[in-house]
């Protein structure tokens, strides 16, 4: 472990015309650490994730990974590839993020050939290792996405992201679309992966229930700003910000009754 954070975000801002979607967000993620960014729709959490991964342009502020800035719009391909090897993203709906014409195993092999780069038997061995790690068997590796369940597709998306051995995995609502009994599998899989290799997670979610199982720290976003940040256990049991409290109080649990605020 080094002192240089894997990810450092300073004053990140995104304006869409008059509207400020993300307003001065600062984050720091140490090597091997897992941070949750929690918020409701319109909080700016996804836009923040997209700016960090370079999928959205930045209005102002900086993103640095391991002390180096995000490649800008004029960056050369080699720079972009080098950046892509450090950070990978898993999206909410693996059906739209996987190529529907490509077999799952081939999709992983393609990433390995491009980024690793591996060939022949070495590539096959590594591909099978990744499939095994996320719990997909041979038959599933030979399938196209539409023949897999939501949970299996999300496993495939995770395997593909892990293929480049990134330092940081950005998970944008990665378990939100899954059935309850399958969500837990994917959360446990992510926890297991982090136990085996040095990898950091930026876990974007609207669902507080999953956060304690995956993240040591949490930031709560509202209307583009961070309203509260701290260790997960502290924030969830003793929130300082009234909005955080509201968010926690809205999660159904045994003995809970829905309440109107207005």
């Amino acid at each position: 472990m080094t002192d240089i954070p894997v990810l450092e975000v300073e004053g990140l801002t995104k304006r869409f015309g008059e509207h400020t979607a993300v307003d001065g967000v600062s984050l720091r993620l140490a090597s091997g650490e897992s941070l949750a960014v929690v918020g409701e729709s319109g909080s700016g959490k996804t836009t923040t994730a997209r700016m960090i991964t370079g999928l959205e342009s930045i209005s102002s502020g900086t993103v640095t990974m391991g002390g180096r800035p995000l490649p800008g719009p004029r960056a050369r391909t080699a720079e972009r590839l080098a950046f892509a090897r450090r950070i990978q993203m898993v999206f909410q709906d693996p059906y739209t993020s996987l190529d529907r014409h490509q077999r799952i195993g081939d999709g992983i092999a393609e990433v390995l050939a491009r980024h690793a780069p591996l060939h022949g038997a070495e590539l096959t061995r590594r591909r099978d290792e990744l499939l095994d790690q996320v719990g997909l068997d041979r038959r599933q590796a030979d399938s196209r996405p539409r023949h897999l369940s939501g949970g299996q597709r999300q496993r495939a998306a995770i395997a593909r992201a892990l293929a480049v051995e990134p330092e940081l995995l950005v998970l944008d609502e990665a378990v939100a679309a899954l059935d309850v009994s399958v969500q837990a599998q994917i959360v446990n899989l992510l926890a297991e992966i982090r136990g085996q290799r040095p990898i950091s997670y930026l876990f974007i979610t609207h669902d507080l229930g999953i956060v304690p199982h995956l993240c040591e720290r949490v930031v709560v976003m509202r209307e583009g700003r961070i309203v509260e940040a701290g260790p997960t256990a502290e924030v969830l049991t003793d929130p300082r910000d009234p909005y955080t409290r509201d968010l926690i109080d809205s999660v159904p649990r045994p003995g809970w009754k829905p309440r109107r605020r207005t």
Binding site: S149, G150, G151, Q152, D179, V180, S181, V182, Q183, A184, Q185, V187, N188, L208, G209, I210, V211, P212, H213, A233, L236, T237, I248, V251, R253, P254
Partner: peptide, 24 residues
């Protein structure tokens, strides 16, 4: 019971998340 164990109360420290293998 398996469904209940897949969604523990987030404010209870150390509530364990138990997954069910397979898919519905």
């Amino acid at each position: 019971r398996a469904l209940l164990a897949s969604r523990p109360d987030p404010t209870v420290p150390d509530a364990r998340l138990r997954a069910v293998d397979g898919r519905p």
